[in-house]
Amino acid sequence: MQIFVKGLTGKTTTLEVEPSDTIENVKAKIQDKTGLPPDQQRLIFAGKQLEDGRTLSDYNIQKESTLHIVWR
């Protein structure tokens, strides 16, 4: 499925993911596209910070959802 990651600059990155992907895995995909290391990424969805060990489905993140990224 496709999801979007929007940064503070307003730039949006598209990712191809599975609902079973962990947040850690998603951060690795973001690094592949942007070069930003996972330890500098904070992902937010529906006002919650996403924890590395959880999956996208744990947070009810579905296709075409938009996550927000904040740099540490």
Results as ranks from 00 to 15, higher is better:
40 Q>T: 07
38 P>Y: 11
62 Q>V: 14
41 Q>H: 09
16 E>S: 15
59 Y>D: 01
67 L>M: 05
10 G>L: 08
68 H>G: 04
57 S>W: 08
24 E>T: 08
22 T>M: 07
17 V>P: 00
51 E>M: 09
25 N>M: 13
71 W>P: 11
8 L>T: 13
48 K>A: 13
32 D>V: 11
28 A>S: 10
62 Q>I: 13
66 T>D: 03
47 G>N: 08
17 V>S: 02
42 R>N: 14
50 L>P: 01
43 L>D: 00
43 L>H: 01
56 L>N: 00
46 A>H: 15
40 Q>L: 10
29 K>L: 10
10 G>C: 06
15 L>T: 01
72 R>N: 15
9 T>H: 15
25 N>A: 12
18 E>R: 13
60 N>Q: 09
46 A>L: 11
11 K>N: 11
1 M>S: 02
44 I>K: 05
62 Q>Y: 10
54 R>H: 13
37 P>S: 10
69 I>A: 04
7 G>A: 10
59 Y>Q: 02
2 Q>G: 04
3 I>Q: 01
23 I>F: 02
3 I>G: 01
23 I>G: 01
20 S>V: 06
12 T>N: 05
31 Q>A: 14
7 G>C: 07
65 S>T: 10
16 E>I: 12
61 I>P: 01
23 I>S: 02
44 I>N: 06
33 K>N: 07
63 K>E: 12
29 K>N: 04
55 T>E: 03
61 I>A: 01
41 Q>A: 09
49 Q>D: 15
70 V>F: 13
22 T>G: 03
25 N>F: 10
72 R>Y: 14
66 T>Q: 05
31 Q>M: 08
43 L>S: 00
47 G>Y: 05
20 S>R: 09
59 Y>E: 03
49 Q>H: 11
10 G>R: 02
39 D>G: 10
3 I>H: 01
36 L>D: 03
68 H>N: 10
33 K>G: 05
68 H>A: 07
48 K>C: 05
35 G>F: 04
38 P>K: 14
29 K>P: 00
62 Q>F: 09
46 A>V: 07
27 K>E: 01
49 Q>S: 10
22 T>R: 07
5 V>E: 01
72 R>V: 15
23 I>N: 01
60 N>F: 08
64 E>W: 12
58 D>P: 00
55 T>Q: 05
3 I>N: 00
71 W>E: 12
35 G>T: 03
34 T>A: 05
60 N>D: 09
36 L>Q: 05
1 M>K: 02
49 Q>W: 13
13 T>D: 08
15 L>Q: 01
16 E>R: 09
14 T>K: 08
37 P>A: 11
63 K>S: 14
9 T>Q: 12
42 R>I: 15
59 Y>M: 03
2 Q>A: 06
11 K>V: 14
64 E>I: 03
62 Q>N: 09
14 T>C: 06
42 R>E: 12
2 Q>V: 15
67 L>W: 01
54 R>E: 04
72 R>C: 08
69 I>Y: 05
41 Q>N: 06
72 R>T: 15
66 T>E: 07
43 L>Q: 00
68 H>M: 14
39 D>Y: 12
59 Y>C: 02
48 K>M: 13
69 I>F: 08
31 Q>R: 12
6 K>T: 14
71 W>M: 14
54 R>V: 05
12 T>P: 11
41 Q>I: 15
38 P>W: 13
21 D>A: 07
2 Q>N: 10
67 L>E: 00
27 K>T: 02
